[in-house]
Design a protein around this nucleic acid. Structure first.
Lengths: 316, 316
DNA sequence: TAGCTTCATAGCAAAATGCTATACAAGCGG
DNA sequence: CCGCTTGTATAGCATTTTGCTATGAAGCTA
């Protein structure tokens, strides 16, 4: 007993509007069209849906039950239309963002929150990815956007990279660390403390290698590795350990005052944080909106950093 | 932007089945039919719903969102079909029962419970009506069944009355009432106690008038009136008041032992409790089932009463 | 009972839907 | 890398459905 969904919708409209003519008008149809639909539905069902010879129109119990389903069909249909509208305007839908863990935790998660204060109907699915997986995920349409630091731009065609912040790493430690009292730090000062290692495969890991070389040490005393940003910060706050972190990540934590910058010059990576996406990919207006939001947020952040640095010699 | 609901359903089926051909099969259609539907939907939406040139078929985010709506449409449609099936078998739907208050409270409410243990998907809407309103409600299709005591069967055509229990009233009082100790009660013994009056307009009210006449008193000492069955029983249990009640109603309360029958013969009404319904009315299989259940329940009750009376001279 | 309003039916044109047959494209194994 | 397999898109056609206008029938109200 398969019923015609259109008929169910018309039934619902008629009951809600209180008459065939009104229901037809509500759907933008003529009265005879709806009248026939009801007759066909009734014939299909084999039971009366209306009490005959009654004005104003009165539905049977079965009529009410079917109308209830018709109503949910109407609702679903309108939701579908709304989803399309919202998708095109970028005010609805799902944005899947992959990113390197520390930046996601330190900055992007906040920006997602800000963004959703403006666009509450956009859902964001965050995932943690480093460059290789990110490229694969973009190509496989698993994510719309990637947040990643990239050096040489040799990703081939089909990808677009929007720079949002120049890469700049620092050595981080807890406030009150004994090294902060030294006027001029030497390399061997740093090697006498334990270090936190970033995740293997992350850009920071190769940066740590660079520092190692510049310091001239073949290996550091690494006692902790694998933690997320919160873990690392918690760890740094409790110990005298040192870690290589992006400056902006530490800057974003300035209000909490749990980590600070050790004034020691380290070699800087030739790399920028940016938004990676497919250029030939599918339209995803909500993702574009989010990308724009992230871009302007970082633009603002850059100014804030500059003002901050002018005001105080931060980290000393 | 009005989308075709059928297309949305097909989209959902295709995504759930994992392919156009499988989705088509699931809906009992051919692959080209569904393929074209998807193309039309995509054209209407103006955005791709599938990632092109990918096998296995991969939907876009928008495709997923629309499919979700399609899925609810499919569900609603199936629910509508189920509602029809259930209606015809009498296993689904709404039964609206009107009845005289005391019988509804004493017996029918229990039977509704029993019935729904067998037919959990039938909803029952109970209302309290006396005969005139009940006839109007049946004619106006506000209720399917009425439970009412009727004397002369002059309801005109279009109504059907199924007798379920002969009318038999008794005088009720609390167990331990002083009158129960009297061997032979006289009329004036009863008039020296206060009485509970039934609701005005109820059959019991006219029965009370009859008793009044048989006792030869022009008025009784009425101190309480208007209560539902529970109120009346609570009242009787607390006082030495007397009340005219249908025997079966008191019998139904025998386990609680809060009211009992005073062994005094009163004139019996020429009236039977029964189920009233429209004969030319709409089919209502669930209501028929319920009516059958009530009928057999009362049939059983009649036997139980008989056995009970054989075993003990009840009420003394 | 007359008149008004509202629903049902008739008849027709246009669109949508379904089918079969066939062309096309993506993955896969040799 | 080529052909094979599998699955999707397109073509063409018959049928059904859907929409409209015009008109008839039926309740309600005065």
């Amino acid at each position: 007993m398969k019923l015609n969904e259109r008929h169910l919708m018309q039934l619902a409209a008629v009951l809600d509007a209180g008459g065939v003519s009104e229901g037809a008008a509500m759907l933008g149809l003529t009265q005879p069209a709806v009248s026939r639909s009801l007759a066909m539905l009734e014939a299909r069902v084999g039971e009366p849906l209306f009490v005959k010879g009654r004005r104003p129109l009165q539905a049977t119990q079965l009529g009410f039950q079917l109308a209830a389903q018709g109503r949910t069909i109407i609702t679903a249909s309108r939701k579908a239309s709304d989803a399309v509208q919202g998708f095109m305007k970028g005010t609805k839908g799902v944005v899947r963002v992959g990113g390197v863990p520390f930046f996601m935790d330190a900055m992007i998660s906040r920006m997602i929150g800000e963004f959703q204060n403006l666009e509450p109907e956009v859902t964001v699915q965050q995932s943690y990815l480093n460059l290789p997986e990110m490229v694969a995920a973009l190509e496989g349409n698993q994510i719309e956007l990637g947040i990643v630091p990239i050096g040489v731009l040799d990703l081939g065609p089909g990808f677009e990279f929007t720079e949002i912040l120049p890469g700049r790493n620092i050595v981080a430690c807890r406030p009150g660390h004994s090294l902060l009292r030294n006027r001029r730090l030497r390399a061997h000062d740093l090697t006498s403390f334990p270090w936190v290692a970033p995740l293997p495969g992350s850009p920071l890991m190769s940066d740590l290698q660079m520092i190692l070389m510049s310091i001239g040490m073949s290996d550091l005393n690494i006692r902790y590795s694998g933690g997320s940003l919160m873990s690392v910060i918690n760890y740094l706050a409790e110990t005298d350990a040192l870690a290589v972190l992006p400056f902006s990540v530490v800057f974003a934590q300035r209000k909490e005052n749990r980590v600070t910058v050790l004034p020691y010059e380290i070699p800087q990576p030739n790399r920028s944080l940016g938004i990676l996406r497919r250029v030939g990919g599918l339209r995803a207006p909500a993702a574009e909106r989010f990308a724009a939001h992230v871009t302007t947020s970082f633009e603002n952040l850059r100014h804030i950093i500059k003002r901050h640095e002018n005001a105080v010699v931060w980290g000393r």
